[in-house]
Design a binder for these strands. Structure first.
Lengths: 167, 167
DNA sequence: TTCTGTGCAAACGCTTTGCACGACT
DNA sequence: AGTCGTGCAAAGCGTTTGCACAGAA
């Protein structure tokens, strides 16, 4: 397999492992797979969880900023390494929001996002909204859609109304 | 409007203007909108058209390389500026393929892409395949899906078969 | 004690930008 | 002639990497 130089992390393999609900479970999971449990990994994972609870997708940079507030000694490189590591482990999904990578823990129920081009807000879209599409694709082309975390562009109801009134 | 620093070009506004079929039409269109017709713009546009004819999405870097073969004096910065310029004019669409921006002239019939995570190949998907989804979204959430050039991840029929046999 | 993971610093790839010159209108 | 677009060079941003040390096993 040719070593892709960049974007090697864009397609999280995700082995279907689900998000542990407590930090302890993270520790168990890491140890169980022969990885070490470090302060940094716990901290980064907590930051992601907090972000997810707030319905936010965090970019690597954002994670770094949040982590730094409490733990200024943790390096940017560690954040990136840890995020990619989680991604490979399937603990975290990565998506592309407006050309920027964003991360979110797996295990929050499968969903996608609707990104409004006007106001920039994102709506959560339940994953099964795409099942019809997936079925059709499979039937017609044999392509097995594996869309775990899409970000679909468009215009939200609110902005659409606003646009109509202006027109 | 707050000046977004980066990714300001990620969301091509696209005013619905269609691709001219000859270089002359490009010239007319540019002049018509009060822009200058330059050698560089014509060359870049031709490169994109050639790429599109070959069914390829070209990254800025690829466009640069192709252009450079014939016109080594044209600078990388010009390529980027010109691509963004075309994008703003709605002559070109931009999509995000595996974390890389790719460009394609508008006016090739509206379509999306299915990107196989295994072999990396892309299949073209007719745009109306998403119309059911768009309708459902509009009805349920009021969100007006405006997906002109999505790249959907998954596994192509060929790779799916190969995976089954291994399993 | 061993060896993985980290901090540090530097490099990387892609993209944008400031400036002065060149060329389209 | 006026001004937009370009080449050049440098910087920017997000991200990765080499190396030596720290700390989990």
């Amino acid at each position: 397999m040719p070593a892709r130089r960049r974007a090697s992390n864009t397609s999280c393999p995700s082995r279907g492992s689900n998000l542990p609900s407590h930090a302890e479970t993270l520790a168990e999971l890491l140890r169980g797979r022969g990885h070490r449990v470090t302060r940094q990994r716990t901290i980064v994972f907590d930051a992601l969880r907090k972000g997810a609870r707030a319905g936010k997708h965090l970019s690597a940079e954002t994670v770094y900023e949040r982590v730094r507030q409490q733990h200024p000694e943790i390096d940017r490189a560690t954040i990136y390494r840890t995020l990619n590591f989680f991604c490979e482990l399937g603990l975290v999904h990565q998506a592309d929001l407006n050309g920027r990578h964003v991360f979110e823990p797996t295990g929050t129920h499968p969903h996608h996002h609707l990104l409004c081009a006007r106001c920039g807000h994102t709506l959560v879209l339940n994953a099964d909204a795409l099942q019809d599409l997936a079925r059709t694709l499979l039937r017609k082309t044999g392509f097995r859609l594996d869309a775990r975390h899409l970000i679909l562009p468009g215009v939200c109801a609110h902005c659409a109304r606003a646009a109509e009134q202006t027109a």
